[in-house]
Design a protein around this nucleic acid. Sequence first.
DNA 1: AGAGAGCTTGACGTTAACGTCAGCGTAACG
DNA 2: CGTTACGCTGACGTTAACGTCAAGCTCTCT
Lengths: 141, 141
Amino acid sequence: MTRNPAAKAEVMTIREMCAAYDVTPRTLRFYEAKELLSPIREGTRRLFTRRDRARLTLILRGKRFGFSLEDIRQTLDLYDRDGSDAAQRQRACEIARERLAIMEAQRAELDVAIADLKAELAASATNTATQRGTAPSHAAE
Amino acid sequence: MTRNPAAKAEVMTIREMCAAYDVTPRTLRFYEAKELLSPIREGTRRLFTRRDRARLTLILRGKRFGFSLEDIRQTLDLYDRDGSDAAQRQRACEIARERLAIMEAQRAELDVAIADLKAELAASATNTATQRGTAPSHAAE
DNA sequence: AGAGAGCTTGACGTTAACGTCAGCGTAACG
DNA sequence: CGTTACGCTGACGTTAACGTCAAGCTCTCT
């Protein structure tokens, strides 16, 4: 009764999750407490579904971009709250568009930063003992 | 004697900095304590140079990418420590290359995230009351 | 000279995102 | 049936990145 053959590999234990995503149990429990994940309970144990795994992927990705868990939680909710009422979906779309704008701006800035660093590297390569490199282009935002 | 005409707008007070970069005095002092900035002292007051401003731009940019202040400090030091010995410069280049690799990977991930979110938005737009959108592509890293 | 305005240095408080540890449950193994 | 392994729940500790006073200088203006 514990092993439904149809549910093979459908869910993962906390240890399997930790191994697969390189996080600690504490982190997973913490994310659950923050309502970023919502694993099933088998008695008292947690079982993580595909949904949890998909969300965790997005969480970890978001973190690398410098988003807070709260930011991420809001963005995540956009992905699976579909059958709600129209007003709520409208609001969700707004948030999504905002996030999108932020990420695209971030990408643009990343491109600048990459270009800067490349230039610095190139300059540093040419003059093994020459001039003093000035600070890169500066635009006050 | 306080106003050298040649030094016009060369340096900025802490208030001017705060207004220009939208940060608090506390933040600037904090960054100085962490050796990210090194303003001149006029008596006891701080005067921020162009170098400080250039660095602050990079600091704030780096923060938006999710880098820690310590990460940023190390990267910043690559930009202006030129006249050092060869070994040190060698090391600096290594760090710069690492950062570059990280940022390029981050850019790639950002593209994926942007594509995901766009897809979700598009799907959400087409079905005003249709199906259930599944979670986006999932690759365990 | 007195009153602000603006700046300074401590020093302690706060929030996010976990780490760490203690104490307890339970499930399987020898 | 004891114990070893894994899991759970608090509860407190920690680090980064500041916020928030308190108390004291130093110009400047009136």
